[in-house]
Design a protein around this nucleic acid. Sequence first.
DNA 1: CTGTTAGCGCATTCAC
DNA 2: GTGAATGCGCTAACAG
Lengths: 327, 327
Amino acid sequence: MPTIKDVAKRAGVAVSTASYALSGNKKIKGSTREKVLAAAKELNYRKNGLAMDLKKNKTKTIALILSDLTGPFYSELIRGVQELVLEKGYDLIVCSSYGDESSTAVKFLRETRTDGVILLAHNIENSFIQGSAREGFPIIVLDRYVTGDPNIISINVNNVNGGYKATDYLIRNGKKSVAFISGPSNSADSNDRYKGYLNALKDHGQTPLSKWILNGNFTQEGGYQATKMLIHQGEMPESIFFANDEMAIGGLEALKESEIRVPGDISIIGFDDIQLAPYLSPPLTTMRQPKYEIGKLASHVIFQVLERVQVKESYSFDTELVERSSC
Amino acid sequence: MPTIKDVAKRAGVAVSTASYALSGNKKIKGSTREKVLAAAKELNYRKNGLAMDLKKNKTKTIALILSDLTGPFYSELIRGVQELVLEKGYDLIVCSSYGDESSTAVKFLRETRTDGVILLAHNIENSFIQGSAREGFPIIVLDRYVTGDPNIISINVNNVNGGYKATDYLIRNGKKSVAFISGPSNSADSNDRYKGYLNALKDHGQTPLSKWILNGNFTQEGGYQATKMLIHQGEMPESIFFANDEMAIGGLEALKESEIRVPGDISIIGFDDIQLAPYLSPPLTTMRQPKYEIGKLASHVIFQVLERVQVKESYSFDTELVERSSC
DNA sequence: CTGTTAGCGCATTCAC
DNA sequence: GTGAATGCGCTAACAG
């Protein structure tokens, strides 16, 4: 790999001259510029971005870290983030936190490779995030509430309220019982939705039954298994609240296999409003998260911090009930 | 931001000693190691990954560049790529080529920021790719056939054949006419599927009608518009071949709006077999691309090149008809 | 205008 | 074991 030094030598100029010429600085005479450019082309010269970033102490890239690249991608979120990031002349890279703390996330959280990160990955622990924050390196956390560092900003959806609204909707529609399929126990999102579920139950004078509270791990397969379990238990609830849409898809499958009709025999509601939701049969009633808006805000806030303007330490969004045909 | 120098100073040792201690080299005495680690912790020291990569002249990361992060993400592809990349101890970052040649792609294609790239982005021109290849920097191109450089490897799906099979299937099922909705004109994928379409038509003695050949730009909206156009034209074909599933989704919508029944009044077939396909109503018949296998091979090949083992300059996969209910 | 030079933060000889 | 010195490729004073 030829370096700028090789280019300079070939063009018969000093390194700095080559550098200036390459970056289009106008203080270089036209003819010398040509010479340099020609030399660069002949050698097939490629600038080393790493060296540049190191020198400038700035990468002009933002990382978006997701727990799973292969899941139903939050494309709305990405769109929100990407728009502003590109507009600001920055680049966006997205990577996975798969593999916990030995994962790619470490590289980008710990080792100064981007100018900031937006994090939506429940498998990374709070303490790790806190240990990664530092002056001038903002971390925007999207799925929980992390305090104690001015460089960590939390953006959340009001999950307790969302869980409440979902459960309340079911009960108001006359359902005498509602089961809850949760996400992983370390997910604050899931736990909060559960809290809302509990609150709604209480307000309506219903008692939570542990046999109707199962873990579905936020995955389609998990939702399928949990629903199967529910079915095998014999007595079915009149409705199920899945803590995310993916699990609801699995649930729908399990129900169909047992020829239990939705919404005829049982009502189900999801959470998130993923792209697929309207295409399911029946189209899934769910709690919509304003993903685009969240992405937009996340990127907005990250640049605020980068530009050293004061921001709040946390933001919150509300969810919205999207009525389709599964209830 | 404290550097290793600060850590060394604080611990009262030389920089190299600190470096050794931090990276766990056993030639450092236990007690000095403790001192260094303590100093690092007190200062909240973070290694600068850029400096390290620069020094080592290796990033241990592979970039996957997609034309659009916000589209229906090829999650199977990513899964295939990610598995091997992680296994090899590398990291994967994915970024978008949105914005053409002023895009993020440039940064990763041109400026030595990763050890190689896998590219699926029809909006990047061949010449740009060829100009980016260099010794020891493999580029795996997934949506076309690029020759002339040992560091560029093409992996393709046999689109001509796929287009043929799709069209042939429709005709064999008794359809007297089949319309074709294409992708962007610069997409080799789309053009090849079109060729297959033409071939099949010819083999069955049908003549392509220009009014039944429309551009849908590979997007849902494009497919919707193209189908609308088809409808407004008056005379409808007995079947439509959408060059990708996304456009078929849009088409399904347009058809539903005009109360044209699928497959009752018209048959439609897509291409790709995206995650959503089985959930559409009716479930979409389509040509499946072995996305997981492609991803797997792409990552396999990239490491082959990195390890300087000889590889073929191009690979090819076949498509497979997935019969569902839209025909 | 152009060239010399000093780092950016780190890993790595090579002496001691 | 430890420390001083060197260089990865590049930019940006500063000097000419």
